[in-house]
Write a protein that binds this DNA or RNA. Structure first.
Lengths: 223, 223
DNA sequence: GTCTATAGAACGATAGAC
DNA sequence: GTCTATCGTTCTATAGAC
């Protein structure tokens, strides 16, 4: 509608992107069952047939949207983790460094959020609450690999702790991370105005601290 | 179909209870939008018109279901909290005692779960992820009052900590609690079999520890 | 209180013109 | 690639017999 034949890049891709962004927004707000092809098309100012044309089905559209949102965060996590390892030059990492690399990239992505890329916190939380079939597989595909990496790093910090303890505490750490992200929008109401929910940086910093303490002291008191 | 005129108690109430239980199960599994009156009626072995007769609408049915599930937990929380206060005889509580009273009742309720009262963990988590209108109001009605009580108790433990710090850490504690409950079903997969998800007691004990450490150390390092 | 039957609306997906 | 139009399905809710 804007770009014409003078545009070098494919002009029609814009619709696809608008659909993806709309799907992300509505999925975060209403979940998979609450998202309808009609609402996505309306939000993206596109036709309902266009959505089916680009993705084939509702399932495929939401899956593609999730992939585009999650992948860059995981890449950034590994980037920060490797940075920290290089700085440590062979010495074991601290749990704070490890959880920083895990959680900080989410904060970065939330802070980037504009009107089109919004409510990442709710979106991430959704993928864990929704029991829909493809979300389960999606989660395994995106998180099981990175969970292995983080388990390995944490077991290097506590070489004497049994695998069971590492897994338990990592599970609680990840669960807390997701819970905090999902609940962030409620912070202002919950704290009766004492804490501002728009300060994402403060939330991420405090969350990393909280989780590091829970993990560290839980392991340290035993090993 | 079972109870006849020989039954002293009202026999027809059973249908209502079956509907409530089915609604709880399906709401936990599929969320508000994924729950349909048809699926509830089918699951409860009742007719679809019966559901509308008893509750008037889908909204009212789910609301009533939530009320019946949440209220006993909150009552038990206050019971444990008052027990602890009586045992302390005026001395301030420990954060562990406070968070125990907050979290332990959920474990009790999950352990009670039979086929009819199942998946409370997912149900509680749903009420925080679902952005549906009445859930927001519901949550405020049920949680804001008890949050005030817990804020007060925690501020007595750390009288020198500013309200802002108490609120921040309480928010993180509650978020972690909800996150851990929501993620509990994933524990077995996540830990690659190292942790059994059916051991609810162990989960609750570890969760209380984790949150107490995160809260305590976060406040103590400053005050 | 519980049923059958159905109204009225919204859903995912597709066909075919442009 | 995007549109209009529509098919077949499923939804909430209600009317009325029993």
């Amino acid at each position: 509608m804007i770009a014409t034949s003078t545009d070098v890049s494919k002009p029609k891709v814009a619709t696809r992107k608008r659909l993806i962004d709309a799907a992300a927004r509505l999925f975060a707000l209403h979940g998979y069952n609450g998202l309808t092809m009609r609402s996505v098309a309306l939000d993206a100012q596109a036709n309902i047939a266009a959505a089916n044309y680009h993705f084939g089905s509702k399932d495929a559209m939401v899956l593609e949207m999730l992939r585009e949102r999650v992948q860059p965060i995981n890449e950034r996590r590994l980037e920060l983790l490797n940075q920290a390892k290089n700085n440590q030059a062979g010495r074991p990492l601290t749990t704070h460094q490890i959880f920083h690399s895990l959680i900080f990239p989410i904060g970065e992505e939330i802070s980037k959020s504009t009107k089109s890329r919004c409510s990442l916190a709710q979106l991430v939380a959704r993928t864990f609450t929704e029991p829909v079939h493809f979300i389960e597989k999606m989660h395994q595909r995106f998180f099981s690999q990175i969970a292995d990496i983080y388990y390995l790093e944490l077991s290097l910090v506590y070489p004497n702790a049994p695998a069971r303890e590492i897994y338990w505490h990592l599970h609680l750490a990840v669960s807390s991370m997701l819970g905090a992200l999902a609940q962030h929008r409620r912070l202002n109401d919950f704290s009766r105005g004492h804490c501002a929910e728009n300060d994402v940086g403060a939330m991420i910093t405090r969350l990393i601290q909280f989780i590091t303490h829970g993990f560290d002291r839980g392991i340290k008191t035993q090993f």
